[in-house]
């Protein structure tokens, strides 16, 4: 790991200022991706701006929405009684991220800002129709994830919270990569209170995506049978030694059906 300048601002404005001044700065929340990447020499920022000093963590769960502050670690989302009651699918998703170390350091803000194509949270943000609150504005979940490791965030913009509307029912089902346990495919299915249905898939493609055909079919009839025949196209999906695009496409269907069956 190369040397870097370390900053720990206590106000978002100071964090943005430090970023502007840095030659090649990086915001760090839990550091669960950034630090291993730096250790491997794959990233070598001149400045680390540690957002831990913002002390921006905590969950508020109400009847209509759940707000998770950006610095909240996965373990806190997973164990929060309010989340478990309001959106059990979100608590379950958080409980399956990484390992206990990651869950107790990694944060929702860090996860979505990094936008790893195999991360779990993007499926929740898109699948539950969440809104991302940043230091500057509100970004609809659908517009937040723009490409592989790319988001709508500006270089000095910081995620401050994610607002999840409480759905009628939802479930997240993940097929972990056998080695890394990242989502090889993860599917969030949610029926929102307005009756609309969302199906969001992570891990399978370069970034999280929705499956409109499934959403339409489920809106007509919310049952696993309704989507049994709907296959996503394999073309463009991720390919590695663990899964071909065809296998991933197949798993999207299997997991979506299982999520529908498990939705509550």
């Amino acid at each position: 790991m190369d040397n870097f300048n370390y900053h720990r601002p206590s106000k978002p404005a100071d964090a943005a200022k430090a970023m502007k001044k840095a030659k090649d700065g990086k915001f760090m929340s839990g550091g669960m991706t950034l630090l291993p990447t730096m250790k491997q020499g794959l990233a070598s920022p001149t400045d680390i701006i540690d957002l831990g000093g913002l002390k921006n963590s905590g969950v508020t769960a109400a009847a209509a929405k759940v707000v998770v502050k950006a610095g909240t670690v996965h373990a806190d989302v997973a164990s929060d009684k309010g989340v478990k009651k309001a959106i059990p699918a979100l608590a379950k998703l958080a409980s399956g991220i990484g390992d206990p170390h990651v869950r107790n350091r990694g944060t929702i803000g860090g996860s979505i800002a990094n936008n790893d194509p195999a991360a779990d949270y993007p499926a929740a943000v898109v699948g539950l129709g969440a809104t991302v609150q940043t230091s500057a504005r509100k970004i609809p979940g659908d517009k937040f994830f723009t490409g592989m490791f790319e988001t709508a965030l500006k270089s000095d913009e910081i995620v401050s919270a994610v607002e999840f509307p409480v759905p009628k029912r939802a479930a997240y089902v993940k097929f972990p990569n056998p080695a890394s346990r990242y989502a090889m495919v993860g599917v969030m299915v949610a029926e929102l209170k307005d009756g609309s249905v969302r199906v969001a898939v992570t891990g399978a493609g370069p970034k999280v995506f929705r499956v409109p055909e499934m959403e339409k079919a489920l809106q007509a009839k919310f049952s696993a049978d309704a989507i049994a025949g709907i296959q996503v196209k394999a073309k463009g999906l991720n390919s590695d030694i663990h899964a071909s695009p065809e296998y991933r496409a197949h798993l999207v269907n299997v997991l979506a059906r299982r999520a529908v069956a498990a939705a509550k």
Partner: peptide
């Protein structure tokens, strides 16, 4: 797994080598 084209070890960490 070694990549036949490059000769690189693809399963060079626990991210890809599954114990």
């Amino acid at each position: 797994v070694y990549d036949p084209d490059s000769g690189q070890l693809i399963t060079g960490s626990y991210m890809d080598y599954c114990m």
